[in-house]
């Protein structure tokens, strides 16, 4: 095989290989839309984070605006301290509510941010004061059962049990 043909084939091979790496990076890894600027950090404390994992998405109105960076337990308050990294360009008001949600019944766990009406914005390192913990399905069911037993006794009444306290926003708990 002469040199020109060899060069051509190797060139085709290397080009194909690099195209495959680019395909994986851009189309599969979605590198184009992932911004590389580090953004800024926000901290929130939750009573219970449920199944929240590292790198879980942080969404506002369903749009991914950041990722969970660290999850720790505060040894004094026994609350989970979640550090989020929010992409630059998204700003949230001081009275934003952070809640731990699940997409669908078995879907991924993520943090939802609901911006409030405050004109002051959260800056790097700020703590989100109002948080809503994960709804633990087992607690919800057991609470429902106890409420049914306490209210009706027989369970024949079709009235819905009052919403368990754990599911309500614990917004009254102010930031420290």
């Amino acid at each position: 095989m002469n040199r020109a043909t060899l060069d051509l084939w190797v060139g085709v091979f290397v080009t194909l290989g690099i195209a495959a790496i680019l395909f994986l990076s851009l189309k599969v890894g979605n590198l184009l839309t992932v911004s590389h600027d580090p953004g800024y950090r926000l901290v929130a404390e939750f009573d219970n984070i449920g199944g929240l994992k590292l790198r879980a998405p942080v969404k506002a109105a369903g749009v991914v605006v950041g990722r969970v960076e660290a999850v720790q337990l505060d040894p004094k308050t026994y609350q989970a301290v979640v550090t989020m990294r929010i992409d630059r360009g998204y700003e949230f008001s001081k009275d934003t509510i952070a809640s731990i949600l699940t997409s669908g019944l078995l879907g991924e766990v993520y943090i939802g941010l609901d911006s409030g009406g405050d004109t002051k914005m959260l800056a790097n390192g700020d703590r989100i004061a109002k948080t809503q913990s994960a709804i633990v399905l087992e607690k919800l069911i057991s609470q429902f059962m106890f409420d049914r037993a306490a209210n009706g006794g027989g369970g024949g009444a079709a009235t819905a049990a009052p919403l368990p306290a754990g599911a309500a926003p614990s917004g009254a708990r102010g930031g420290k």
Binding site: I21, L24, S25, K27, V28, G29, N30, L31, T33, V34, R55, P57, V64
Partner: peptide, 16 residues
């Protein structure tokens, strides 16, 4: 779903 789950640094670079 693929794009939101696959991370460039963690998945693709580690694979390479």
């Amino acid at each position: 779903n693929m794009q939101s789950a696959v991370d460039f640094r963690y998945d693709i670079v580690n694979g390479i």
